[in-house]
């Protein structure tokens, strides 16, 4: 017998970066979103993008302490994806007819707005990272993304000791910060 975890369990798993939870949600709901996007003027790649973006919204939600899911997970994902896709269509000016509501939806406008702001910040950070250049980029990624410790990093990058690596890391961090805030101001202005 197959045990399907409840929506609540899945969300908890998501908040804890549990890969199993991601897989389960993916298995249960990806196909629905794919047909939504494809039936409304989108491609497979776009379907994948939208679903993953909806997953990020869900991820952020699951991590925020005050979040409470007051509808089915399926409905929530569908609503967010639909909203995201509507916005995307508008931006691309690919006018389609009103996206038919096959499934029931819940209002998610606010979440999607918030997500978009965050996404912008994410893009800004990515840009700053890209323009940082090597070895700074790899160094910071190793520390902040791959969560390696300084000793390990020093060994990998060929620094004589961890303190030197640390120094270098902070220099890089300061440059990243400048780049990020420059980008930030650019976007605000």
């Amino acid at each position: 017998m197959k045990i399907i975890p409840s929506d609540k369990e899945l969300l908890e798993g998501l908040a804890k970066d549990n890969r199993q939870a991601v897989e389960t949600i993916y298995k249960l709901h990806y196909q629905m979103i794919q047909s939504l996007i494809i039936n409304n003027n989108g491609s497979i790649d776009e379907a994948r993008d939208i679903f993953q973006e909806a997953m990020i919204v869900l991820y952020e939600k699951s991590r925020s302490p005050q979040f409470e899911l007051n509808c089915q997970l399926k409905t929530y994902i569908y609503s967010v994806s639909r909203r995201l896709w509507l916005k995307r269509l508008q931006q691309m000016q690919r006018f389609g007819p009103e996206i038919g509501k096959i499934e029931e939806t819940v209002p998610v406008e606010e979440e999607v707005e918030n997500h978009e702001t965050k996404n912008q910040e994410f893009v800004m950070m990515e840009k700053a990272m890209q323009s940082l250049g090597e070895p700074c980029k790899s160094l910071l990624e190793a520390y902040y993304l791959q969560k390696k410790n300084m000793v390990e990093i020093a060994g990998n990058f060929g620094y004589t000791n961890a303190d030197n690596a640390k120094n270098q890391k902070y220099k890089c961090l300061m440059r990243l910060k400048k780049l990020f805030f420059a980008e930030y101001k650019n976007n605000q202005g």
């Binding site: 970066d17 890969r19 991601v22 994948r48 997953m55 965050k118 910040e121 994410f122 902040y144 993304l145």
Partner: peptide, 17 residues
């Protein structure tokens, strides 16, 4: 932090996909 979380999460999503 958010950047690194998202980045990791996104790569998980792609792997899962």
């Amino acid at each position: 932090n958010q950047f690194s979380d998202w980045k990791n999460y996104k790569s998980t999503l792609n792997e899962v996909h």
